[in-house]
Design a protein around this nucleic acid. Structure first.
Lengths: 185, 185
DNA sequence: GTCTATAAAAGGATAGAC
DNA sequence: GTCTATCCTTTTATAGAC
């Protein structure tokens, strides 16, 4: 999991995985028929971890549903800082690295996005009439993912978290405008 | 250029480049000392092509500066459709594929983003007081790039252009809100 | 500058004893 | 289930004649 995140799927060799885990070739291949099966397992682990490993820590002590959205983005900001601005979303990176993924891999990538977006969408629904009734909450939740992925990509390319911050700040301005619109009605 | 776009940098072999171009190994290495030098040349070509190959075609017949922003996004929508929703931005894909790029590569990736964003920023400045004076035009231009990259990533992962469309539609709503704000003042 | 042949290493995966 | 040894392919890059 960590090697695929740090180096990417293609650039991680089986030899490196064996050395890192102190496992022998025979044992690994006993459980995982091929390298791609390792990727499938990793993507399943990410999917299962969205709640307990990502959202719950990010949302500890945060009750307001709209603040939850920005608390999650703040968590990514922390990851960017912790990695000296080299952070890449493991799902997004693999989604762009693999140009002709197996259908099973593609589906797991999509399921990861869907799980993430669904959690945000729930927040936006909890926000009720603080957002305009006309707002497509799913589309807005997808925009939040878009902002995270696009912000992470630019922060990493420039090695500067300010690129992430500016996109998030624009998203905040958009939310403020939506709240104002909902209020006016 | 095309092979790196279609297959990624790591998954494109020199042998494939030789076969595709009908060039022999000796000739290629005479001009390009190593594979990475090919990547540098490709990234320079993309940078030089932003205007003539991307913006000018996308903006043909479009005068309104804000419509130019969405015309460019519409161009990407066309690319997504032309590739059966497998389109990946060549710059963004390589930015996420390479986890420890050479400084020269990283800088060229950043320069590509900067050129793209600068063109959008110019549009936003041309929009003048149709946007609030308080709007950070650079940050907003970066958000446009963010939306393109995030939208392309999701459309590709889901193999469905609707994911791109929804993020762009949200961006449009944001622009509408900004224009309304500017008008009210 | 271009050609063919090939080096040298790294890659994923397997064999077969234990 | 785990161990060591190794197979076979692919990969980037080079050698050296022309």
């Amino acid at each position: 999991m960590e090697l695929f995140w740090l180096k990417g799927y293609g650039s991680t060799s089986i030899a490196e995985i064996l050395s890192r885990t102190q496992i022998n070739s025979g044992s690994l291949y006993h459980f995982f028929p091929g390298k791609q099966d390792l990727l499938l397992a990793v993507l399943e682990a990410y999917r299962e971890g969205i709640g307990p490993m990502l959202l719950e820590p990010a949302w500890a002590g945060v009750g307001d549903p709209i603040e939850k959205v920005f608390a999650l983005l703040a968590r990514y900001r922390g990851l960017i800082l912790e990695t000296d601005c080299t952070y890449g979303c493991p799902i997004g990176s693999i989604a762009l690295e693999l140009h002709e993924p197996d259908e099973a891999v593609r589906r797991l990538l999509a399921e990861n996005f869907t799980g993430w977006v669904a959690a945000i969408e729930t927040c936006l629904q909890e926000a009720g009439d603080r957002l305009p009734a006309s707002t497509d909450r799913r589309a807005l939740a997808e925009l939040v993912l878009t902002v995270m992925e696009g912000g992470v990509m630019q922060a990493r390319t420039y090695r500067d978290v300010a690129y992430f911050d500016r996109s998030v700040e624009q998203l905040r301005t958009y939310f403020d405008a939506l709240e104002k619109l909902a209020c006016a009605k």
